[in-house]
Design a protein around this nucleic acid. Sequence first.
RNA 1: GGCGCCGUACCCAAGUGGCAAGGGAGAGGUCUGCAAAACCUUUAUGCAGCGGUUCGAAUCCGCUCGGCGCCUCCA
Length: 476
Amino acid sequence: MALRIHNTLTGTADELVPGGARRERIEDYPPVTIYSCGPTVYGYAHIGNFRTFIFNDFLRRYLKFRGYRIDHAMNITDVDDKTIAGATEEGITLAEYTGRYTAIFLEDLKTLNIEPVEHMPKATESIEAMIDIIQRLREKGIVYNKEGSLYFSIARFENYGKLSRLDTREIKTGLRYDTDSYEKDDVRDFALWKVEKEGETSWETPFGRGRPGWHIECSAMIRRIFGTTIDIHTGGVDLIFPHHENEIAQSEAAYGEQFVRHWIHVEHLLVNGSKMSKSLGNFYTLRDLLEKGYSPRSIRYLLISAHYRKQLNFTLEGIGQADQALERIDNLIVRLNDIRKDGRPGPNLQKMVDSLLLGFAEAVDDDLNISKGLGVFFEFIHALNTLISNDRLNRPDADLAMEALVKIDAVLGVIFFKTTAKSDIDPAWVDSMIAERIAARKDRNFKRADEIRTILTEKGIILEDTKEGTRWKTKG
RNA sequence: GGCGCCGUACCCAAGUGGCAAGGGAGAGGUCUGCAAAACCUUUAUGCAGCGGUUCGAAUCCGCUCGGCGCCUCCA
């Protein structure tokens, strides 16, 4: 069974072949080189943005789960029109401004249990690599100069449009394309380098002072970090055109080799049926949701649980449903931990675990079909619960089951990750309350027993009476 | 106007030619002093609608209706 992922470039679900040459065993492949388009740090990212970043995280975790090694980069865009405007408005330097929002972004990633990637380059630290690309393009005569700014001429690059299938498109008439407010020969030509403007941050180059165009940074960073063709490039679907199309054009024109083998694009998060975006103002930031009391792992679960190529309509109710699904898993863990004695002979648990892991991999291998994978996972949970209810799960088997949960969670990142750690609960106090309640129940003083349970509930502690005695857990 | 995607139960969501996964919510039952958790049973002869192909269609084809995205900064 091979991992196949939909490739925007080919339009089909292509097998992942790191390095481009097929090998017998996964461990024989070179590390999978991945580049993900990161944020422009001019404000708080919204959870639509985070859908993509959580997807990136899921992708890298799943690749590791399948035995691949990975080498993953995500950029920080710290110079563009918006960051410059923001810094100017506040009267601080560009670096101060972007530094603030970069820190916030990194905190949010951590909150969502997103693993750090191997490389996190900044645009402003990649100027040399940009210059190299532009110089090569100039030597090949693909660049023209308009009032000091440099543009890529798509008319002089024959493969232009292969990613977004532009050759079959018509450009809508009457639309303005000169949003950069610079003059261009062809509306689809794009700026590689923008001439210095009064008061803006700029860099000295062989072709004059200025700052980078939008698309050049990704091409430059990929070249600088990976050197050659990379395996996977990810981003939101809105980046297919023009951003990724232009990356391909400048990189392949400059270096004469394939830029990226596998393009993966994540669909949009919708809210009330339309795209969540800053310009529409219909967005939630992560912090908005945390303030409303939703947990990061529920948000993560919700955003991860729908297939990445389907639009996902975001609702607060959806977070609640995700929360309930996670609680189902939490409850299983409580029950597993509570198993003390040997149960009656059960089935071959190792076999159940093997089939869980195999079924999960088969599901997710099919274009990262996590929904199907979660179905397999919840069937396993149900089977375990049934065994426990029938007293047919012993301690060693419970340990095996727990190991399986850990393996699945290495991909999901939602189970053994709790952020509501503000534990002002004293376990000794809880135990004494429970002891008092047990005594009360023994005396059939149920009024007092229920009183104690209510006191604990108000502290977020839930009691469960089992045959073996009373156990407790915290809520949420 | 061009390109593309989607429409499956009360909600979310797999399935893309052979008896409709899974999660949430609801109903009934078991256990419990009562709860909680769990288990058992139950909730689409039906997959936007209408035609067609086929022994057989949610799945393929055509049309219709509805929703969304990209074509412009955007994850």
